[in-house]
């Protein structure tokens, strides 16, 4: 209870510790999040995705400044990849947001992708909840790159920003990853580079909004030039923030926000189910060596994966030893 109060009062130490405990899956952590849950759901959550090197952190940094100008408090969750070899990670995104380090209205937390079991989405969802409970008006989630894992994380957001850079072949990657469909705002970053015009044209034809009903949201495209031409950059990132706010307003007015919240809730339940059914089952099978045996048998065509899975499901669901 003490922790809940502290976090709701905005205490950074308690909040960052709880995020850590949740990531580390300490047994006392989940009950605390349950207590926090009623205090969540009020923040506006923005997802930023795009290829590595697209400048997501730099844009996040600029967006923090814009929201702070509006006196809104900001939480940032920056995801970086875990090394598959050592399990360690270098989390370097916050370097680009250092000027906000001492602003008490800004809370920046780095998150490593960690496990292979797909727990990232839940870890991100947990951290977002903690920031919501802290009372952050806006929470920005910055993904590692473009991929399935990112797509899952992005479902936690109300508005999704996709960052593209000319000349990186992003557009194709983006389409493949199915991110075009979920983008609410496009940012063409480093638009001073050659190829920016072409990227804009391609994007416009891909989006092909002509068939949409008049009331539908048409994902705007904001071009952002060189970070080091301070005046222009500030103006363009202000425009980006403006478009994001417009999208937020659209969600509210059109009733779409409820749909997004539903999408988010579904995501959270799915994540939670994975965490309390799939994960313990897999952990037990790994610990007992059974998973290895099954893998071998499937490999040797002595068994099929479907029957094996059904057998396991029946066994665990009946025995109730999954929690």
């Amino acid at each position: 209870m003490e922790t809940t109060k502290k976090i709701c009062a905005g205490d950074v130490r308690s909040a960052s510790r709880l995020i850590r405990d949740l990531e580390d899956k300490l047994p006392q952590a989940r009950p605390r999040l349950k207590q926090l849950f009623p205090h969540t759901g009020k923040s506006f959550i923005i997802g930023i995705t795009g290829a590595p090197g697209a400048g997501k952190s730099t844009l996040t940094d600029a967006l923090i400044s814009e929201f702070r100008k509006q006196k809104r408090t900001v939480g940032v969750l920056a995801v970086d990849p875990t090394s598959p070899f050592s399990g360690g990670a270098i989390l370097g995104d916050r370097v680009r947001m250092l000027r906000h380090a001492e602003d008490e209205g800004v809370f920046i937390r780095s998150l490593a992708t960690r496990g292979a079991l797909g727990g990232l989405s839940q870890a991100a969802g947990d951290a977002i909840h903690v920031m919501e409970a802290m009372g952050k008006d806006v929470v920005i989630v910055e993904t590692v790159g473009i991929g399935q894992q990112e797509l899952d994380i992005i479902h936690h957001a109300h508005s999704v920003i996709v960052v593209l850079v000319p000349g990186m072949g992003d557009e194709i990657q983006t389409m493949k990853a199915g991110i075009m469909e979920i983008a609410d705002v496009f940012a063409i970053n480093k638009a001073d580079r050659p190829g920016a015009k072409q990227l804009q044209t391609e994007l416009a034809s891909l989006l092909n909004t002509s068939a949409l009903p008049p009331s539908a949201w048409r994902a705007p495209v904001v071009s952002i030039g060189n970070l080091y031409e301070p005046a222009g950059f500030a103006e363009q990132t202000a425009e980006l923030a403006q478009k994001i706010s417009e999208h937020h307003a659209h969600l509210l007015i059109s009733g779409q926000l409820a749909l997004r919240m539903e999408r988010k809730a579904l995501m959270e339940i799915t994540d939670a189910l994975k965490a309390c059914i799939l994960e313990p089952v897999l952990n037990k099978l790994i610990a007992s060596g059974e998973l290895k045996n099954i893998t071998q048998r499937v490999k040797n065509r002595e068994a099929d994966p479907y029957t094996e899975a059904e057998t396991i499901a029946r066994r665990f669901l009946k025995s109730g030893e999954i929690s």
Binding site: G92, V95, R96, L98, Y228, E229
Partner: peptide
């Protein structure tokens, strides 16, 4: 006039 450059922290 020119803005400030900050360490991009490349490791």
């Amino acid at each position: 006039v020119y803005g400030e450059y900050r360490d991009p922290g490349i490791y």
